[in-house]
Amino acid sequence: MTQTLQFRYYYKNQAEQFHFYKIPKVLFTDPRFKGLSAEAKILYGLMLDRMSLSMKNGWMDSQNRIYIYFTLEDALELMGCGQGKAVRLFAELDSVKGIGLIERKKQGQGKPAKIYVKNFLEDEAVTGESDENKTSQNRNSEKGDFQGKDEQFSQNGNSQHEVTSNFQKSALLKKESPDIPFSGSLDFSKSNGNNTDLSKTERNDTESFYDSMDGMERAREKQEMEQLIRRNIEYDVLFLRNPSCDREIDEIVSLMTEVASSRRSTIHLDKQDIPQPMVKERLLSLQCEHIEYVLERMQSSTAKIHNIRAYLLTALYHAPETIHHYYAAQMRESND
């Protein structure tokens, strides 16, 4: 039986100190989405949240459409479910077998798929056209011809009838085995290539519920860790002082969060295994000046870096020890 914890009450404006994942209310009130499972709606909310990272990194295609990277491994960690369920949740949202709230574009060569998160406020069944169709119509009207209607449906790959049909089938997705591969890219790990008996080994609903709760708890802990790290390093100040390094700063925050919230007993660092609590304590001691120091060292380094993650983690871990020696050496060189 799960242990009951003694949580404290909220007082005054304490609830505003947290960040929350936002799931659109319309997904629960609009009849169009009644066929979607609650977990698929949560996954869609997580993908909506991921778009803020895409905006910071400028991940847009030639038509200014935003895309995200959200792998199966991300879903497993955040949703706390088994791989079979995660695949079915992707399929529920997918434009091929599901309702069409996401569209996956494979890149090949082991790269993760680009995922376009579709606008839930507009769909073809209501407006009669997609964003791609609107772009095509505008282009045709400028040329003075109105032959773009057939082109619209060929570009989008789904007619209005097909969208409606896909939605009607979405309620049956839990009983289907989606034709999405389990290997060959970063979205699906190679270690699970054979899943022919997946339905036989599926955990029961009670176990799945507690797995989901554990996954949500892990996601909450990770989010709180990221907030703590951002405060420690004065994240907003870093951006203002280093506007050209915005992507690198986000990568540093992501790496620090991952390592500091890891449940591993040790972290392999600098060719040795260091206890995770020791690494966590060091990372949480870093401040704005340490991050700027690491950024400067990376920009000035002429050596070829083969494993940027290991290099960056090592630099962050040793930053409090080496920062003063580095700037002292620079001062001596400027005085000579």
Score class of each variant (00 low, 15 high):
residue 302 T to R: 11
residue 57 N to F: 02
residue 207 E to L: 05
residue 147 Q to W: 07
residue 208 S to W: 05
residue 126 V to L: 15
residue 295 L to C: 04
residue 228 L to D: 08
residue 9 Y to V: 14
residue 63 Q to P: 11
residue 150 D to Q: 10
residue 11 Y to A: 14
residue 278 M to L: 11
residue 210 Y to H: 09
residue 302 T to G: 13
residue 78 L to G: 00
residue 188 F to Q: 04
residue 56 K to E: 10
residue 42 I to L: 14
residue 328 A to N: 15
residue 194 N to I: 00
residue 59 W to Q: 02
residue 79 M to L: 06
residue 12 K to C: 08
residue 276 Q to K: 04
residue 127 T to C: 04
residue 159 S to R: 00
residue 298 M to L: 13
residue 214 D to C: 08
residue 177 S to Q: 15
residue 275 P to F: 10
residue 73 E to L: 05
residue 159 S to N: 00
residue 2 T to F: 15
residue 87 V to I: 11
residue 52 S to R: 05
residue 241 R to C: 03
residue 65 R to H: 04
residue 191 S to T: 05
residue 71 T to R: 09
residue 204 N to Y: 03
residue 165 S to L: 02
residue 197 D to F: 00
residue 166 N to Y: 01
residue 163 V to L: 00
residue 130 S to A: 10
residue 275 P to L: 07
residue 17 Q to G: 13
residue 4 T to V: 04
residue 52 S to W: 02
residue 311 Y to I: 12
residue 2 T to C: 15
residue 149 K to N: 12
residue 246 D to T: 09
residue 139 R to I: 07
residue 318 H to C: 01
residue 303 A to V: 13
residue 134 K to M: 15
residue 255 L to S: 03
residue 329 A to H: 04
residue 96 V to R: 00
residue 241 R to H: 09
residue 281 E to Y: 08
residue 37 S to Q: 08
residue 326 Y to N: 07
residue 24 P to K: 13
residue 247 R to Q: 13
residue 158 N to L: 01
residue 251 E to S: 11
residue 233 I to E: 05
residue 46 L to H: 07
residue 122 E to W: 00
residue 208 S to A: 11
residue 186 L to V: 15
residue 134 K to A: 15
residue 270 D to A: 14
residue 216 M to D: 14
residue 4 T to S: 08
residue 321 E to I: 15
residue 8 R to G: 03
residue 87 V to H: 00
residue 246 D to K: 04
residue 239 F to H: 13
residue 76 L to E: 08
residue 113 A to G: 03
residue 204 N to D: 06
residue 187 D to G: 06
residue 293 Y to H: 10
residue 312 L to D: 13
residue 264 R to A: 09
residue 191 S to V: 10
residue 294 V to K: 02
residue 161 H to S: 02
residue 125 A to V: 15
residue 152 Q to F: 04
residue 172 L to N: 12
residue 48 L to D: 09
residue 25 K to V: 06
residue 244 S to D: 12
residue 110 G to S: 09
residue 279 V to R: 04
residue 84 G to I: 00
residue 185 S to T: 13
